[in-house]
Amino acid sequence: MKKWSTAAIGMALPALIGLGLFVVLPFLLAIGLSFTNARLGSPLGIQFVGLREYVYVLSDATFWRALGNNCLFAALIVPGQTALALGLALLLNQPLRGMVVFRTLFFMPVIFPIALVSVVWILIFAPGPEGMLNGFLGWLSGGAWQPRDFLNDPTWALPAVVLTSIWQGAGFQMVVLLAGLQSIDPALHEAAAMDGAGRFRRFLHVTLPGLRNPLIFVTIVTTILSFRIFDQVRIMTNGGPKGATTTVVYEIVQAAFDRAQLSRGAAMAVLFFVLVLGLTLIQRRVFKQHGAVNR
C-alpha cells in the first residue's frame, strides 16, 4: 500500500507545486502588497499602510466608472451573445448535409486571437463615409446615415467593443449549446407534439429545460469573461474616449505599470477577485435553486 502512496505523491506534486508557486503565492502577494505603499522601481522601503489604498480606490471615480463599464459590458454581451449562439445552434440543429460547413464557419472566429480580431474590427469601425460599417449603413439607409467615428464616440465606443467581443465569442457558446441540443431525447419532442404542443411551446417546455446545464455554463463563463475584458479595450480604445470603455482590469494595469503604483494595482486586483468570486457564487446559487447542476 505504501508504494501506491509514494507514486501518488510523485504524480500530484508537479501540478500542485506549479499552482502553489504561480497562482497561490502571487495571490497572497497581491493581498500583502495591497496593504503597503509599494511602487515599481522606488528606492524607498516598503511600508505597511493598512487600508489606505483600498480607501483611495473605493473613493476614486475612475474605479467606479470602470466597474460600471464592466457591468454594462456584461449586460450587453451576456444576453446578446447567448441569444445569438442559441439562435445559431437552433439553426444548425437539423439533419441536413452541409451543416458541418456552417458550424465550422461560425466557430472559426474562436480560433482568432482577440488581438487580431480587435485590429480587424478597428478597420471595420473606421471613421468617415469610407469606413466599412459606415459605408454599409449609408448604403442600407440610402444615404441617410451620418458617418461616425465609432471608436472615438463616447456613446458608440462601448457598443463597438461589445460587437467585436460577441463576434469572437459566439462560436464557442454555439458549439456548447449545439451539443446540448443534440443530447435532448427526440422522443420528448415527439411526445409533446402528440399532446398538441406547437413549436413555440415545445421550445419553451422541452428545448429550454433540456439545455439548462449548457446554458448555465455559458452564462457563467461569459459573465466572468465580461468582467475580465482587457485586450480589446487596450488595443481598440485605450479605455477612451474619456473613460467610456475603461474596465477594472484596464485600470489595474494602468495603475501598476503606467503609473508604477504597485500597491494600488494590487488593491484593485484584490477587489476584482472578490467581485469575480461573488459573481460565481451568486450564479451557482441562483441556478442551483432551479435544479441540479453538474458539479
Partner: peptide, 30 residues
Amino acid sequence: LDLPGKKIALALVMAVLVIPFEAIAIPLFY
C-alpha cells in the same frame, strides 16, 4: 490514488479555478 491530503489538494484545485489570471498578474510580474 491513495494520495495523502487528497481532500485538501482537491479543494485547492477548485479554489484556484476561481482566481482570474488578471488578479494575480501584477504580483506574478513582480
